[in-house]
Structures are given as structure tokens and as C-alpha cells.
Design a protein around this nucleic acid. Sequence first.
DNA 1: GTTACTTGCTTTTTT
DNA 2: AGCAAGTAAC
Length: 766
Amino acid sequence: MQNLLHNLNEEQLAAVTLPAQSALILAGAGSGKTRVLTTRIAWLIQTGQVSPSGILAVTFTNKAAKEMLTRLSAMLPINTRGMWIGTFHGLCNRLLRTHHRDAALPQTFQILDTQDQLSAIKRLLKAQNVDDEKFPPKDVMYFINGAKDQGLRAHDIEPYNADERKKVELYQLYDDQCQREGVVDFAELLLRTYELLSRNQPLREHYQQRFQHILVDEFQDTNDLQYKWLKLLSGHGGQQGGVLFAVGDDDQSIYAFRGANVGNMSAFEREFNVKNLIKLEQNYRSHGHILDAANVLIANNSKRLGKNLRTDAGHGEQLRVYEANSDLSEASWIIEETKNLIHDGASRSEIAVLYRSNAQSRVIEHALFSAGIPYHVYGGLRYFQRAEVKHAIAYLQLMDNPHNDSAFLRVVNFPARGIGVRSIETLQAAADQYRVSLYAAVPYVTGKAGTSLAGFVKLIEGTRFETQQMALPELVRIVLEQSTLLSHYATEKEGADRIENLEQMVSAATQFLSEEGYGQGAPAHLGPQAQASSGTAVVNEDGFEILDADAPLATVMSPLSAFLSHASLEAGDNQATIGQEAVQMMTVHSAKGLEFNNVFITGLEEGLFPHESSSREHDGVEEERRLMYVAITRARQRLYLSFAQTRMLHGQTRYNMKSRFFEELPEDALKWLTPKVQQSWFGGRKSAWDEAPLVGSDNAIAQKFAAKAISTGGGWRIGESVAHAKFGEGVIVNIEGSGNNARAQINFGAAGMKVLDLSIAKLDRI
DNA sequence: GTTACTTGCTTTTTT
DNA sequence: AGCAAGTAAC
């Protein structure tokens, strides 16, 4: 016990040992948030206030859940495997498998990832003859997910115009389609569970009684539905239910774009009448200047619960600011500094290069590669998202549930077996007519198409029969062979990597079995009924028998179903990890939760960071500022900030002003490596081209541009404001050509972007 | 049915 | 620029 609470500071100790009442912990960056959360759980168990089964701990990512489990098993001598610690989606999956009948789902329901969902929607739009110009599949998907994230079904939405009415209609049809196919998307996992528990009183009461303590990580990232879900389970408004312990940081809320609602924090405080609000403001990560910068910057946001980080560490070094002429010279500067850091003994994995958007990584990657510095880029394609792996998964899905039309369509003609668009159309028509799945409609198709389709069905049936008694890894191997995926890729010239990935699936299956506590030899298809005795049957006072979703997943899911869930819910690691110690490259978003001794924040330019699209959204800039706050607080010792005057983006050269965030940082925390200039394109000092010589080593590009800009007829310059008789006022965005051929691209705001011939167009300077 | 070319898109990401 | 997806030609 003493051990457990040892080394906690006053605030942390207070949070860990709070009485059993709803509590909100405002945990700043680097303040020991995960530590508090896990110690709280350990303390509750160790003091006998609750048994491990009375705990429900929810996170957003698998990584966070794993981290919590690892730390917990280090603190307590208990088996954490049976504990309810997981992601919202993972926990819902567990509940729905157990209570699939009450939730009106087939036991083998499958989970659509985002890709699958989009293709399901495309299929629906086609079937409904919907103009996908007017209703782009992505928009329809956002609409549906947005509604689900708020806990709304199609019939809950009052459409305010014809377009929305159509979307609502499509939402309903989409849900029908999923139900027919026995599939659920990510948002559906949560919504379905929410509905299950709110409609089924005995079930709800059972879980409300069971979970005496509910702990939520990253509470600022919860969406409306997740908050409702938590309210329901904690029995908010009723006399029974658990205690909600929420940990979060409103300053690190960076997921509003996907439905997260920071407002849930104050709503929670109000609705749960929270008396225990504890702020963890002691930072154990960063040096003083870094923390000052973060504090001063975030103070510019208006909607805050209020929190200021402090540290006992000294000021440390100032933040180093570099202005580059171009994205290329920014990259070469990063290389130089990285080399210096490594030379001075820094470990490569303690150097992180952050950027706002993935498109920015390429130039830096290229530079690192040329310099021979090992690096690792986060955020690439994940293992289970690779095309060949998805194909194999689709075959496995058909083993378990042949009525999954998405899976069927993905592989019915892959590898090619002579089943083309025509055959599929015929099949689709039959399926519509008899209102069955594509698979079930195959017997209705006659002729040549019917023969090839029947051949495919035979392949699936045959493989299913053959693998009946096999263990999962073996089944995977047989499916890879029977599907002819392996032989197909063997004939492709670039197929070697793909084959390797496919073969890796067999070991992934083996590993999965041992991690999830399945017997290695258990038949992959074994139904849960065979093992039902190991589950906990509960009869409550009303005489309802409840199978608690308590026991290992093996009780409620066959190894195959479980493996497929795993593939959807945990897409696997980002690309093969480079063995060597490598420089870490990632977006600011994916850096959340990580920390490094040395951090570069690159591309600090208006339009990039803050991103231009943010100015259009409500509180968009505030979210960008929080993003910057997250970025700054990743650094322990040294922080570099950089921006470039010229940048190639999407095949166009862009000229950005330096980020407004520089003006919001405390001056004495900054050390300008290049002279600080009051740079401004619109008024104030003239453009940077006018200043020669330019700073830095690589100013050739800039000078070229400068020369070009001046040589163009009339001396028009990029960034200059102009007036046109017809289009009104605008800004020159780009100039191409020279002399009589010079043309300018001008942004006229409301009148749009125009390209005008400078020798013809009548423009006035403003 | 397959292949080669054109078009369009491009913020952030997890499940 | 670079990539995915859709379309036209083989």
C-alpha cells in the first residue's frame, strides 16, 4: 500500500484516493495522468473497495488500454486478462457478442472498418440510383457517422431540406443493408450497445450493479454518444450505478473534427454534480522555457477550464526558431541539426520531427534518406489494411458469414476467375428480387455467369468443409492456398512482399490465440455453445437469465470470429518497424501521448499550421492552437520551430506567412537562429524577395523567384493586392511566364480564382 | 475481361 | 506531385 502511493505528489495522491464520488481530473500534459488512473484502480482493489470485476476502464486506443494493463499487472499480483479494460469499441464488441440475440445481431456479426463502410455505401448508392455527384459517398458516410455519434437513428432526424431528407432515407437504407448482411460499422458498435442497454432493463441493471467504478481516459475526446453511454452505465439519474472517474485535458482536445465534444467535460461537471475537481498541474516532462511557451500560447484560447503547468526543472534552453527559404532548405536544416544532435550523443529515437499534415513528410523523408539517417514514419498503411491482407480477411469472413456482401464482392473475382461486372449485375438483380444476400442468390443465376458463380460458392463451401475441425492458424493457411491468393501473387513481379505479408497472417493467428487465451488447438469454427459452461450464468431477481460478458472472449466468440474482430478493431502496427534506432516522424495528432528529448515542429506557416481549413470552422483556430500546444509539450529538453517562405504543396508553389503562433509565444523563450523579421505580405515590410541577400545557405530558389517576379511586366508581385473592373479586389497568388506571356493567378475572393494575362488585363494596385 | 490512360482530390485519425 | 479510382480502348 505504501508502495503504491509512494512517490505521488499531493495532487496525484488526492486524485488516487478520492472517495467513491464522481470526479473530474484535469490532467495537464506530462502530469502523470496514466499513472494516476492505474494507481487509482490498484488502490481501489488493494483497499478492498472493489473487486477487479467491478472495474470498468475505458480508453480510446488499444495502445492506451495495453499500457494500462501492463502497468496494472506490475502494481498488483492479479490476472488482468479478465478485467474490463479496453477501448469503447472493444468493450462494446464484447457486450454485443455475448448478448447478440438481445441486440438482434447474428453471433458472427462482422465489423466494417472505414474502407469497408465506404464501399458498402457506394454499393448502396448505386443500387438506389443515387447521383453520386450530388451525394458523394464520403458525404453520406460523414452524415451517417455524425448522426450515430450523436446517438441518432434515421427516424430521430428531422430533415430541414430535400437533400437532407434524402440523406436520412439513405441512412435508413444503409442500416437495413448492414442488418441484412450481418455487419456493423464502428459507430454502430457503440450505438447498438447503447440501445441494447437502454431498452433492456435487467441487462442494464446487471451491468450497472456490476461496474462500481467506471474510469475514463482522455475524456475530452468523448463524443456525445460515448458520454451518453457512460451516463447510462454509471446509472446517472438512477439510484444504482457506478462512480464515474474521468480524466482529461481540455487543452489537448484535438479531435473535434471527428465528433469529439469538449463540452462533455463541463456537462459532466454539471450533470454529475462533481465536487471533486482536481487539477494536475505539476509537469514532469519539459524544461521551463518549453512549458512557458505552451502556457502562454494556450492562454490565447477563450474556452478553457483553466490550468497552468509548472515544473521544478530549470528554464533549460530556449526554443530555437528557424526561417527557411524553402521547404527544401527547411529539410536540410533539420538534417544538419539532427546530425549535430546525434553527434552530441542524442539517441535517434529521441528525436521527433512533427508536421501538421502528412503531405509535408515527403521532403523531410527524402532529405533524411539522402543523408543516410535512419527514420521511421508513423501513419502509413497498417498491416490489416493492406490490400492483399484485406483480400485474405474477406475470404476468412466468408468462412464465418457468407452473407457479408462486402466481403463477397471484394474477392468473388479476385484472383480473376471470369466473373465480371455483367455477372455481378445479374447476381445483384437476383439478390434484390429474392431479398437475399449475393451469396444466397447465386443459385438463381443461370447460364455461363451462373456456372462461374457456382464455382466460387463451391470453393467457399469446400474450404469451409475442409477446415471444419482445424485450428485457426491452419485454417488461415488453407484459405490462403485455396483462394489461390498465394499463387496469384507468385506470378506478379511485385508480389514477393505481398506473399510475405500473407504468410505473416498465419503467425499473426498463432500469436492471437495465445494472447487471447484460446487453446492453440481449438477448432477455429467451434461455436460458443460448446463452451457455454465456462461463462457466468446469472439469474437476477426478475428471473432473467443473463450470461455475463465476463469470461474470456472464447466463451462468446469462435476463434475465427474473434480473430476477425481483432483485425478490424486493431488494424495492427504501422508498417514493419525499422530495427535500427530511428528518427521519429509523425503528424502532431499522432504525437499526442508521446514524448521526446528533442522535437522539431516544422511548417509553422499560416495556412498550414494553423491549417487554412480551420478558419472556416467554428473555433477552428482554437483547435489548431491546442494542436500546437500538444506539439510543444511533447518536448523534454530541446524544441525547434521552423517555417519556410516557399513550399511545394500539391504540385503548386505556395508562399505562406509565418504562423500567427509565433506572435503568441513569449519572446524571451525564443531564440531566433535566423534574424526575426516583421514579415508580412500585405502591407508592412515588403515581401522577403526584396531583401537580398537572403539568410540561409540555400537561397537560390528564392532569388530565382525574386528575379522572376520583378521581371514580369509591370512589376507585379505575388501577394500584391489588385483591383479589377469586373472581378473586384483580389490578391495575386502566383505568376507564370514573363514579358508579354506573363499570366497571374489572382484570388478575387467571392468572384473566385482567375488566371489573367498581365499584358491584357487591366489591373490597378490598391 | 483486362489493361492503359485520364480525372480528381488532397487536414488531422481511431476504432 | 502523387495516388486512387473511374473510364475508354484493347
